[in-house]
Every structure is written in structure tokens, then in C-alpha cells.
Amino acid sequence: MELDKAYCLFCRGLSPYGPFWEHCLEYWKASLATPDKVLFLKYEEIKEDSVGVARKLAVFLGVPFSQEEESSGVPEEVARLCSFETLTSLQVNQLSVVNDHGDHRFPANSAFFRKGQVGDWANHISREMGEKMDQITKEKLKGSGLAF
């Protein structure tokens, strides 16, 4: 699907996988109500402090890093292994195989990755589109305490 068409549909609240903002808010609210069961992370947080997020995730899963693991750099290694750079370099994510699942044809795995940089949207949509998306985001999340 062309980006302009997908953008227009998204702005109207139409998404192939359901109502995006409603999904975000459901998980956000669940993370506030049951923080021991739902961990809400934002990509920006992960990019800003991947080691801290690895620690947070380990605690959430009930297996915090031990002092020995901390001393030997295990959180840093987990963050490195889960990094965008590592994941995009895996052979499975570079294959040019097209998966056919019934009526849905998916592009090569590598098509699901861009640069992995916060703010890279500016290289793909216009400033006006970005401003409109910001306005829709603020409107949809108003009063929830969730912000992007």
C-alpha cells in the first residue's frame, strides 16, 4: 500500500489490525492498573536507555540481574543482542523470501525495517503530515496521562 493512502486511512482510524489508539490506551490503562502484569514500553525509551530497559524487563519478568551478572556486563550484553543493529543483521531478517499467508502477501522481512532511529518519520512524511499526526495523537490520548 502506498504511504499516502496508508497515512490517510490511519488518520481516519482505519488500520488492518484494529484501532491503534484504542489498543495503545487499553494497554496503557492496564499497565497502570496492574503494573505487575503489563509492562508498557515506548520505542523512544528503549532507544534512549536500552540497558535500563533490559534491567526493568528482567525485574518485571521476576528474574532481576544478580550482582554477579551486573558486574560481568550481562545487562549490556542483553541490550546489545536485542539492539536494532543486531536484529536487522540476522540472516532471517535479511532474506528476500515473501511469505504467503492466505490472502495476505508480506514483503521480504527486510522491508519491515527502516533505520530504527527516533524521528526518522521526518524522512518519510511531510512536516504537515507530522503535525496532523501529532494533533490526532494529542486528541486521542487526551486526559490519559500517556504521551508520545
Rank of each mutant, 00 (worst) to 15 (best):
Y17S: 10
Y17Q: 10
G18K: 14
G18C: 13
P19H: 15
P19I: 12
P19C: 14
P19D: 14
P19Y: 15
F20G: 03
W21D: 00
W21V: 06
E22L: 12
H23E: 07
H23L: 13
L25S: 05
E26V: 09
E26M: 13
Y27L: 15
Y27K: 15
W28Y: 06
K29N: 13
K29L: 11
A30I: 08
A30R: 11
A30E: 00
S31Y: 01
S31A: 11
A33G: 07
A33S: 14
A33P: 04
T34S: 15
D36G: 09
K37A: 03
V38W: 05
V38L: 11
V38S: 07
F40D: 09
F40E: 10
L41R: 09
K42S: 10
K42I: 10
K42C: 10
Y43N: 11
Y43R: 14
E44H: 05
E44C: 03
E45Q: 14
E45I: 08
I46Y: 04
I46L: 15
K47Y: 05
E48V: 04
E48Q: 13
E48K: 15
D49N: 08
D49G: 02
S50T: 06
S50H: 11
S50W: 03
V51L: 11
V51Y: 02
V51Q: 03
G52A: 00
A54L: 04
A54D: 05
R55A: 06
R55L: 10
K56C: 02
L57M: 13
A58W: 05
A58I: 06
V59S: 09
V59F: 10
F60V: 01
F60T: 02
L61K: 10
L61W: 06
G62K: 04
G62F: 03
V63G: 08
V63K: 15
P64M: 14
P64C: 11
F65R: 02
E68Y: 04
E70M: 12
E70A: 05
S71G: 09
S71E: 11
S72K: 09
G73L: 11
G73F: 07
V74Y: 02
P75H: 03
E76H: 06
E77L: 12
E77V: 06
V78S: 05
V78L: 13
V78W: 05
A79T: 04
R80Q: 05
R80A: 02
L81M: 11
C82A: 11
C82G: 02
S83W: 04
S83T: 04
F84R: 09
F84H: 07
F84I: 10
E85G: 07
T86D: 04
T86G: 01
L87S: 05
T88F: 03
T88C: 11
T88V: 12
T88P: 04
S89A: 15
L90N: 00
Q91W: 01
V92P: 04
V92E: 14
N93I: 08
N93T: 06
Q94Y: 01
L95P: 00
L95Y: 06
S96C: 14
S96H: 14
S96R: 15
S96T: 12
V97H: 12
V98W: 09
N99T: 14
N99I: 15
N99G: 08
